[in-house]
Nucleic acid binder design. Sequence first.
DNA 1: CGATTTATGTCAACAATACTGACCTAACTG
DNA 2: CAGTTAGGTCAGTATTGTTGACATAAATCG
Lengths: 176, 176
Amino acid sequence: MLKTRSRSAPPMKLAPPTPEVDVGDREMRLAQDLLFFAYRDFTTVADKVLEDLGLGRAHHRALHFIGRNPGITVSGLLAILRITKQSLARVLNTLVDEGFVAQAPGYEDRRQRLLTLTEKGQALERRLFASQQAKLAAAYRAAGPQAVQGFRAVMRAVMDKGARDYIDGTGAAEDA
Amino acid sequence: MLKTRSRSAPPMKLAPPTPEVDVGDREMRLAQDLLFFAYRDFTTVADKVLEDLGLGRAHHRALHFIGRNPGITVSGLLAILRITKQSLARVLNTLVDEGFVAQAPGYEDRRQRLLTLTEKGQALERRLFASQQAKLAAAYRAAGPQAVQGFRAVMRAVMDKGARDYIDGTGAAEDA
DNA sequence: CGATTTATGTCAACAATACTGACCTAACTG
DNA sequence: CAGTTAGGTCAGTATTGTTGACATAAATCG
């Protein structure tokens, strides 16, 4: 970053870097960094694929959760994503119009629209998945199986109970 | 099939839940879920504090990284956040106007604006931090120290090299 | 059966963040 | 001095989220 220009000049001390009250503080702030960078870089790889198709992250999320929960209802999806139905409608309509997602009326309750991925949708989801998988698999290999277990434990504990239940459930959709 | 309100009705099989080609696929998709939910729920707790102040997540991020890197330059911050300077300017101007962030010209290069948190800014950062710390500390306790190590290892491996270097460096800002 | 609730959808407006492109100044550098 | 660099700013646009107000068909309740 510093080409040459700065010969030396003391690093300057303006203020202590975010004062830490106890030992744990340091690793807590580190964890904030970790979450930020890991999430950012993990999501970014898929963005490149989406860009060509004129889709965004919101579409990816819908695609992902429909893929993992075939036959999920609109409200099931809303509960997972925790966004308003108007926000979801926008992306969902696009996905349906472009043939990535299919809808079928529920037979038990015909008001419901059961969502599934079409062949085309599955293909796209796989493409998106592959882009992230490469990075993730490498990370898993680098960190080792033991670390992966720890990673999962911490991540599970960070999320809300609703999300944890969703994860634990075989992926039966519903709540979140 | 007409007035059926049969509360049983088979769970229906529309399609297999996102076909998995190999064993690893399953845990890879799980990891996607983990990242999504953990990041969402982790960031959300701070949003509540920000809301009262009319600030958003972008302000939080700037505040956080300035706090961790006192005296960071605008371009240093840009490199970390990876957004455009126009985007950063908007939040930074607000933070400066409202007295959360102070600017000082670099003495080595007087074009630079070295950013630091004011007292007020530090106070806010601490408040925001506290909200997330509670959740995170609980998660760390629940998962155990061994898991925390694994968590860190995986997160580090997921992020880009630039971010990893930033993390590893004592927080010397610069690249990312 | 009629009344109500539920699942879903739609229109419209607005807010937060991001982006691009263009252009400007002051200060450093060769 | 000429050129690059650090930073700023104006203007327009896109994505994704929000609220609020209604509309409709199907389920459910009394």
